[in-house]
Amino acid sequence: MTGIRVIGIETTRDGGLLGTFAMYHRTPRVPQDTDLALAAVFAGTAALAIERHHSEQARQAAEARAKAAHDELAKVVSAERHLRAEAERRAAAAAELTARMRTAAAAQAAMPHPEHCQLGGRPGCTAPAEIKIADSWGDAAWGCPDHVEEAIINVRSVFIASEELGGLAAYVNR
């Protein structure tokens, strides 16, 4: 193979270079019209195959990105649903604690400092009533440390009412 002639250069539709096409002969010679025609056919066919391959790779990459975006969106939607459910649960817990505080405030007229926690819910809490909490509406209740913490976390405007904190002494004997 002594004669090497580059007789075709193939480009993409947008002008980018895909490759070159050459024909080899046993003896050096000038390309014939048939050589040029064959080179044009082969180079064109190769260009189509290469462009199709590039298009397929681009399509697969786009599908992978779309799937990843879809999966991420599904995670976000799931997290949003979970957070919404948690917020609704906390709102319900806060409403229940607020109702317990109002009930406890009404009961304190008869017994200013109850023996057991007033914030324990329906089954009741048998823990000693150690801490008094109040809200900005003037409702107060006595509770155990666990239920007081729950009320402070879940009910707006609740604070510990004690003489030690100063300024809240009126609530202690309410």
Rank of each mutant, 00 (worst) to 15 (best):
T2R: 14
G3M: 04
I4E: 09
I4V: 13
I4K: 12
V6E: 13
G19N: 05
T27N: 10
D33K: 07
D33W: 05
L36M: 08
G44C: 01
A49D: 07
I50C: 01
E51I: 04
S55M: 09
E56R: 05
Q57A: 09
A58T: 06
R59A: 10
A64M: 08
R65N: 07
A66L: 04
A68L: 08
A68S: 07
A74L: 13
K75H: 10
V76A: 09
V77P: 04
V77K: 11
H82S: 12
R84G: 03
E86R: 15
A87V: 04
A87L: 06
R89A: 14
A93M: 10
A94N: 03
A94V: 02
M101T: 02
M101P: 03
T103M: 11
A104C: 07
A104P: 06
H116V: 12
Q118Y: 04
G121V: 00
C125G: 04
A129C: 03
K132S: 08
G138Q: 04
D139W: 03
A140E: 09
A141S: 03
A141Q: 04
W142C: 00
W142L: 01
D146M: 07
H147A: 03
E150G: 06
A151C: 09
I152D: 03
N154Y: 05
S157Y: 13
F159D: 02
S162L: 05
L165I: 10
A170S: 12
Y171K: 05
V172A: 10
N173T: 14
